[in-house]
Structure formats: C-alpha cells, structure tokens
C-alpha cells in the first residue's frame, strides 16, 4: 500500500517536528520544509498529496507559495491547508482559495481531523 505524503511547511522550530511526529504516527509519510522556496524544492523531488503551510515565513511566505502553486499546473490540484495564528477573517484579504484553515496553536485532533477529511483515513 502506498503511503500518502504530506508536505509540512513551517519556519518555526518545533512545529515541523511535532507535525511530522503526529502524522507519521497516524500512518502518513511526511516531508518538511522551512519556507515557500524550500517547499517548491521539496515538491520537485516528491509526490505530495497534501500541503500544510504556515502563512508568515521568511524568503517566501505561505501566500506567495500558494500563488506559485496555483500558477503551476503540476501542483495546482494539491490540497493546501493554511496554518496561521491569526483568526481566519484577518488573513482573507491576503489569500483566498485554499482548501482548509488550521488555526494556531492547534491541537493534535484538529490536525488529524483536517488531514483525514482531505485525504481520507490513512491506508492500513
């Protein structure tokens, strides 16, 4: 059975690690990146089923990453979950069209609910 892959994009130390642990325990394969540019590099070498991305990051933020993905036919169908510590109405003037929103700080169940909802339960 092929494992589904989640790309986690976050610049903050610890967030990528904890998301990787949560999702790996739940049966997903996880790839991490620390900003939008880094995420695009990761996408080039991996088949990704879902992206969990922070909004505020250095080099290339989540909004710019989402715009870059939408402009690229290879990636525009990948579900994109935006993570931010601001309430969702506060960021909707910067970014629209993402698949789901995950408010930070999030709980384990919040993460798993969203990922399972988008990808379906992990195989096995």
């Amino acid at each position: 059975m092929i494992m589904q892959t989640v790309l986690v994009v976050d610049d903050e130390f610890g967030i990528g690690e904890v998301l990787e642990a949560i999702l790996t325990d739940d049966g997903y394969r996880v790839v991490t990146a620390i900003n939008g540019n880094h995420a695009l590099e990761r996408l080039a070498g991996n088949r990704v089923d879902l992206i969990l991305s922070d909004l505020m990051m250095p080099v290339m933020d989540g909004a710019a990453l989402f715009a870059a993905l939408q402009a690229d036919k290879r990636y525009q169908r990948i579900p994109f979950v935006l993570m931010c510590s601001l309430p969702e109405p506060n960021i909707q003037n910067r970014i629209k069209g993402y698949t789901a929103f995950l408010h930070k700080p999030f709980k384990v169940d919040d993460v798993l609910d969203i990922v399972r909802k988008v990808l379906g339960p992990p195989p096995g």
């Binding site: 610890g14 904890v18 949560i22």
Partner: peptide, 12 residues
C-alpha cells in the same frame, strides 16, 4: 524544552 512546549500546546 521547546519540544516539550510544542507538545504541550498541540496536546492541550
């Protein structure tokens, strides 16, 4: 410590 802190937040 940072790892614990993150764990505390995500698990409440």
């Amino acid at each position: 410590i940072h790892g614990l802190q993150t764990q505390a937040v995500v698990t409440d």
